[in-house]
Simulated assay, not measured.
Amino acid sequence: MSGEAAREPQPPREPAPMPHRPTALRLVEAMLFAAGEPLDEATLMARLPEGADVRALLAELAADYAPRGVNLVRVAGKWMLRTAPDLGFLLARDKPEPRRLSRAALETLAIIAYHQPATRAEIEEIRGVSTNKGTLDVLLAAGWVRLRGRRRSPGRPVTYGTTETFLVHFGLDTIRDLPGLDELRGTGLIDARVSAGLTVPLPNDDAALQDDEDPLESDFDLSLAPEPDSEPEREEGGDEPGG
């Protein structure tokens, strides 16, 4: 073969054919892509052909997306497409700056997550300082905390718990995915020298009211209504040492 012949442009190669994807798999993928919120298996199953194994389809999609820039993840018992964790920092610059929670709000959120259902008085007892109602209002407005019911005790204080939005935001499948004592020690959030008697409760966000809870009144304002046992509201950041 001459040099000129060797330099002649070669015809473009045909792209390799894409492997056939079953219709049911494509349907699941399309629903998850179009959804604005996580979808549960029942919702997905309702749109699939009869006899489709939704769990097997989700497992196949999750494996398919694992090495990609978008992953299929399970949060709050539901499924959603989410940016791969190792790429999140690259996209953070394009997102609006989120409102930063105060230390008081972070502590309050952590106490509610681990000790729910919890009243304001119980939160203050654990923190060791009085808690502004404004601190709870911030968490309610963010959608991470909800009003559950009323404790069967004098004053019938409101009980607080976490929400599905809390699980989705922090990428948790269930509330029990929160770190335990050993994990908290490993991250340095708890001093390794603390008392051996220290324990971290097993979180439980069961929606059913407990034996010592009553339902909220039907006309109760679920937005930012005051509690009957609340003190006069102080400015955020005015949390004071408890007496």
Rank of each mutant, 00 (worst) to 15 (best):
153 S>V: 14
6 A>P: 03
52 A>F: 04
209 L>V: 07
171 G>P: 06
235 E>S: 12
237 G>W: 05
210 Q>K: 11
139 L>A: 13
89 F>L: 12
117 P>D: 00
24 A>I: 10
236 E>A: 14
55 R>H: 14
102 S>K: 12
199 T>V: 14
196 A>E: 15
103 R>L: 14
145 V>M: 09
154 P>D: 08
20 H>C: 12
17 P>Q: 13
179 P>V: 00
164 E>V: 09
83 T>Y: 06
47 R>P: 00
48 L>M: 09
184 L>R: 04
152 R>H: 07
47 R>K: 14
96 P>V: 12
217 E>Y: 03
8 E>C: 05
201 P>W: 10
17 P>D: 08
113 A>H: 02
195 S>R: 15
178 L>V: 00
200 V>E: 05
219 D>S: 10
232 P>F: 00
42 A>F: 07
41 E>Q: 09
68 R>V: 05
18 M>Y: 02
216 L>R: 02
164 E>Q: 13
34 A>V: 02
60 E>W: 12
110 A>Q: 05
72 L>W: 03
5 A>W: 04
123 I>E: 05
124 E>G: 05
98 P>R: 05
74 R>N: 00
163 T>R: 06
213 E>R: 06
159 T>E: 02
176 R>P: 00
125 E>I: 09
231 E>H: 04
209 L>P: 03
61 L>V: 08
204 N>A: 06
132 N>P: 06
233 E>A: 15
183 E>G: 03
91 L>R: 07
220 F>I: 02
88 G>A: 15
213 E>F: 04
188 G>H: 05
198 L>S: 12
108 T>R: 10
213 E>Y: 02
24 A>Q: 12
116 Q>A: 11
126 I>G: 06
55 R>T: 14
63 A>Y: 07
81 L>M: 10
124 E>T: 10
57 L>V: 14
38 P>M: 03
18 M>V: 10
37 E>Q: 14
196 A>W: 10
105 A>M: 08
66 A>T: 09
238 G>S: 14
176 R>K: 10
87 L>S: 08
33 F>A: 14
128 G>C: 11
156 R>D: 00
216 L>Y: 00
30 A>K: 11
120 R>K: 15
84 A>D: 09
215 P>V: 04
13 R>F: 01
3 G>W: 07
34 A>N: 00
15 P>S: 02
1 M>R: 13
209 L>K: 05
210 Q>M: 11
114 Y>R: 07
222 L>I: 04
77 G>K: 04
150 R>T: 02
31 M>G: 03
240 E>F: 08
96 P>F: 07
226 P>R: 12
190 I>W: 02
5 A>F: 00
37 E>I: 01
117 P>W: 01
25 L>I: 11
234 R>C: 03
242 G>W: 13
86 D>Y: 15
77 G>Y: 00
129 V>T: 14
116 Q>I: 08
16 A>E: 13
210 Q>G: 15
149 G>K: 05
169 H>T: 14
123 I>N: 03
135 T>V: 15
76 A>C: 00
132 N>S: 13
143 G>V: 12
137 D>A: 14
199 T>Y: 09
97 E>F: 01
101 L>G: 10
9 P>Q: 03
40 D>M: 04
16 A>S: 08
